[in-house]
């Protein structure tokens, strides 16, 4: 076992002087688990090494989002002892199992309800909810709007891959028109939810949308969501390579990432005429969506109203 492993913040984080040469306790733990490597970036120390590699399919965008979340957390926290991750059921929800924080893997659609209870019992914890588009918008849709209405101080990240990945690629309330899924063999005829605007309308005080492709942007947005007091909601567009990508013949993980780049307002002007991936008219068109922080405001949180935390802090 090597104790020479020294964690190092990512290159872009300002470093005060030099890195302390002593190994941190969790480095020692990570080394003891036998899977850390010299020079591994800081966020890797927040992983449960014994659980890796994770169970997601090759190219699944959820892993990119997980890495970005850990990078943001590594910029904000030394350890994850006071951070709780709460998730429902789904491939997206599954990622909390790889984070070496306090984690709750709960029932389908109910991570926000568990998280509400946890936050009211322990307002000192940073509570992050990880949910999917099926988990958070179908079965858990009601819990989402009510958490937003209450403005409880949680940070909810919804991994939107436009499909139910875990159960075999069924239609989700976010599936784009025309897309093929195992339950829409003739293409989807329904209109999808705009999850971010839904949460804003329901009273969420920090609402943002990001992409796994622009992973640095998501990292910044997630960091801002963590800092926000009140219900913070970040919808992050990711790709299910195994079902959404394959069923719609959209190519591999890299192709799907490029298709995200095309469905981005930043390049709207150039690509408005040809926003489809691979230019096949019969394939679904990824709509151009607004990205970034879409709404930010301040109002009394549930904990403040209940006198659990000092107001205005």
């Amino acid at each position: 076992m090597s104790l020479d492993v020294v964690s190092r913040p990512p290159a872009d984080v300002p470093q005060g002087g030099t890195v302390a040469p002593e190994a941190r306790a969790d480095d020692v733990l990570a080394a003891a688990r036998g899977a850390s490597w010299p020079g591994a970036s800081a966020e890797k120390h927040f992983l449960r090494y014994g659980m890796m590699p994770h169970m997601l399919c090759p190219g699944c965008g959820h892993g990119i989002v997980l890495d970005a979340m850990l990078r943001a957390l590594a910029r904000r926290y030394e350890t994850l002892d006071d951070v709780a991750f709460v998730a429902g059921i789904g491939c997206s929800s599954r990622v909390v199992g790889y984070v070496d924080a306090c984690t709750l893997h709960t029932t389908h659609g109910r991570p926000l309800t568990f998280a509400t209870g946890l936050k009211l019992a322990r307002p000192d914890l940073e509570v992050v909810v990880v949910t999917g588009d099926g988990d958070g918008l179908s079965i858990g849709g009601n819990h989402l709007i009510h958490a937003a209405r209450r403005n409880i101080d949680l940070t909810c990240v919804l991994f939107n891959n436009e499909i139910y990945g875990m159960t075999g690629g069924q239609l989700a309330p976010t599936t784009i028109p025309g897309a093929y899924t195992s339950t829409s063999p003739k293409g989807n005829h329904e209109q999808p939810f705009d999850a971010a605007r839904l949460v804003e309308a329901a009273g969420g005080t920090f609402v943002a949308r990001a992409q796994s492709f622009r992973t640095r942007d998501f990292e910044e947005i997630f960091l801002r969501a963590l800092e926000h007091k009140g219900f913070s909601f970040v919808e992050v567009m990711t790709d299910c390579t195994e079902y959404f990508g394959r069923t719609n013949r959209l190519g591999n993980g890299a192709d799907l990432l490029f298709s995200q780049a095309r469905a981005d307002v930043a390049i709207e002007a150039d690509l408005a005429g040809r926003p489809t991936l691979q230019e096949v008219p019969a394939r679904p068109v990824r709509p151009v969506m607004e990205m970034g922080v879409l709404h930010e405001s301040r109002r009394q949180t549930l904990e403040e109203a209940m006198g659990l935390v000092e107001a205005g802090s």
């Binding site: 020479d4 492993v5 190092r8 913040p9 290159a11 470093q15 030099t18 010299p38 020079g39």
Partner: peptide, 23 residues
């Protein structure tokens, strides 16, 4: 090295052919 480019790298003795002395 305080004015060097790039972030610190502290290779472990096992993986690196050279000895290192922390910072």
């Amino acid at each position: 090295r305080t004015v060097e480019p790039g972030p610190e790298v502290v290779p472990s003795a096992s993986a690196s052919p050279v000895e290192h002395d922390g910072a």
